[in-house]
């Protein structure tokens, strides 16, 4: 059985660095996208099992990426976790309303994020 693919979308290299290592260590195959456009491209090509998605990015923001993924029959089964510094109630509600499966806030706990990924992929 091949390793499950996970797409990490964030424009902060240091955050990507930690998530990349975390996923690899737990037996996943991570892909990295620096912005929304890149994320959509990789998602279509690789069809990952799950996307960890930042919201505030240059250009297309995370909400839009999520909506596009969910509205495309090719990618709409992909699980999506928002991981954002936006912790307000409105931001979380908006995130859930565009179709995300989970909303986690930064700074995050590495064990918790792993737990959520596992739960969603069972």
């Amino acid at each position: 059985m091949s390793e499950k693919k996970i797409l990490i979308v964030d424009d902060e290299p240091s955050i990507v660095l930690s998530l990349d290592y975390l996923m690899r260590k737990n037996g996943f195959q991570p892909f990295i996208a620096r912005n929304g456009e890149e994320a959509l491209e990789i998602a279509k090509n690789e069809i990952p099992a799950l996307v960890i998605l930042d919201i505030m990015m240059p250009g297309m923001d995370g909400y839009e990426v999520c909506e596009k993924l969910k509205s495309n029959p090719l990618t709409n089964s992909i699980k999506i976790i928002f991981l954002s510094a936006k912790s307000g109630k409105e931001a979380i509600e908006k995130g859930m309303s565009v179709g995300a499966d989970k909303y986690l806030t930064k700074p995050f706990n590495t064990k918790q994020i792993m737990q959520e990924v596992m739960n969603l992929l069972q």
């Binding site: 902060e12 955050i15 660095l17 975390l22 930064k106 700074p107 995050f108 706990n109 064990k111």
Partner: peptide, 14 residues
């Protein structure tokens, strides 16, 4: 401030 803090926390945990 949250962005660097997030990286620092995650990397330290790892």
């Amino acid at each position: 401030l949250r962005t660097p803090l997030t990286s620092i926390k995650a990397l330290s945990e790892l």
